[in-house]
Nucleic acid binder design. Structure first.
Lengths: 238, 238
DNA sequence: ATTTTAAAATGATTTTTGTCATGTTTTATT
DNA sequence: AATAAAACATGACAAAAATCATTTTAAAAT
């Protein structure tokens, strides 16, 4: 069930302040506020489906969204996890293509939908915004090149170690003996992130735990030994 | 040895007509012409190195360039092959990062170097160009997502079949019994394209030949049975 | 034309990873 | 609280792919 609530106007939105929309003009902000559509989403809900036509972009005010492609074998390859302050769907929209991936909620989320026309108006009228967006797209491309190279040239052990390090960078909070990855991901989702079978992830996580690189706390993972994971991940700067 | 020659002005450049620079204004074209730097490159030469700072963009007037990342195991993951009318290096330039990959000449090339300031001037002053570039970046991102998903979820046999189909799409010329892939790639380079070991590619190509899906003609590959390759590649629309 | 070097091919073997089957634990639902 | 359904775990095995060693062939270089 979709819940539409009274929402903060964009002008006051805190997550916006640290997003690509951070430096918009007063009129653009008002226009956004007037046309956006704020919706609360529960874990598991689907934001958009691969293969459908984008009608706008999503701004994450809070929560976590996984963006994945479904492979022909039925498995999910997670392209990225998107967080507060990030945008979704602009790439397919601006590429004038159908969604290349599906977006579903991983942690309960508050998300604003900005209709295509509203978004394009900002893009066309605010060149500085357009340039920020271009920069972000270019950096995303660099990240994807790196991911592709890792996927083909590194072992799954290395990739899992790297993934855990990245997760702890993004979601890390103090967790006593180490850094707690403060987001709930199933083994299947971690497998989708790394690009492998669930069983392989289960085995490797057990191995990492045995080697005291990580520990489990409920559904969350504690990173005990970053150096060890970095060594394992055959980290080369990326 | 770098050969600097007398070159066609951009206004007359045929490869430009089918590139992102196709609809530039007269003044912008003149400015490009005045500032570009035309260089002929021989097979094997390096255009730019991963990790170095981009100083401009490259426009391919003729030839083929492979863009690859070197993995920590020393192997090359080819990100893409770039052809006549395509641009190189703008992603790292606009992302304000060092080159994420290396570019080397695969087939003798004529390439214009456009200095950063000149390129940025066009980008800032011609919004329509900027939008075309954004669109291309977004589509490239979609392609990378697809490649990543293939890399993690498909077998090497499937990926090789897909790669051969794509190569014949781009480089295909009539070749008697089938379509000839009219570009010389070593087995090692095909391996870099697919993301696997050279020996694996050699074995699979032999298998494909035995199964009469392809044939060899000198250093080039003839695709005999596209349908068969498509079936093998487990094609899902991408 | 001969030597050197690089590329391609092939076999043997090991390692890695995926799959299937099954059991246990945890979480959600009635 | 009982039941059902996910999620997690583990073993056994099969398949895929990498590695290493060696040979053959083709292309460059002298």
């Amino acid at each position: 069930m979709i819940v539409r609530e009274k929402s903060t106007p964009c002008e006051m939105c805190l997550s916006r302040k640290f997003s690509m929309f951070s430096n918009l003009s007063e009129p653009h902000l008002c226009n956004l506020s007037d046309n956006k559509n704020f919706i609360s989403h529960k874990k598991g809900q689907i934001l958009f489906y691969e293969g459908t036509k984008p009608l706008g972009v999503f701004c994450i005010n809070d929560g976590v969204v996984k963006v994945f492609k479904t492979a022909s074998n039925g498995k999910e390859q997670i392209i990225r996890l998107a967080n507060k302050g990030e945008f979704l769907g602009y790439s397919s929209l601006l590429g004038e293509e159908v969604y290349s991936s599906t977006g579903t909620i991983v942690e309960d989320a508050k998300i604003c939908f900005v209709p295509k026309e509203t978004f394009l108006k900002v893009l066309v009228e605010d060149n500085s915004f357009h340039r920020r967006l271009t920069k972000a797209l270019c950096q995303d491309l660099g990240i994807m090149e790196h991911k592709l190279t890792d996927a083909t040239q590194k072992s799954i052990r290395e990739r899992l170690a790297f993934t855990l390090l990245k997760l702890s960078e993004t979601y890390g909070v103090d967790g006593g003996a180490g850094e707690k990855i403060d987001v709930v991901l199933t083994r299947e989702e971690i497998a989708g992130l790394v690009g492998t079978a669930t069983e392989t992830i289960i085995r490797l996580l057990s191995e990492f735990k045995k080697d005291e690189l990580i520990n489990f706390e409920g559904k969350k993972i504690i990173v005990l030994n970053k150096k060890g994971l970095a060594r394992l991940s055959d980290f080369y700067g990326g």
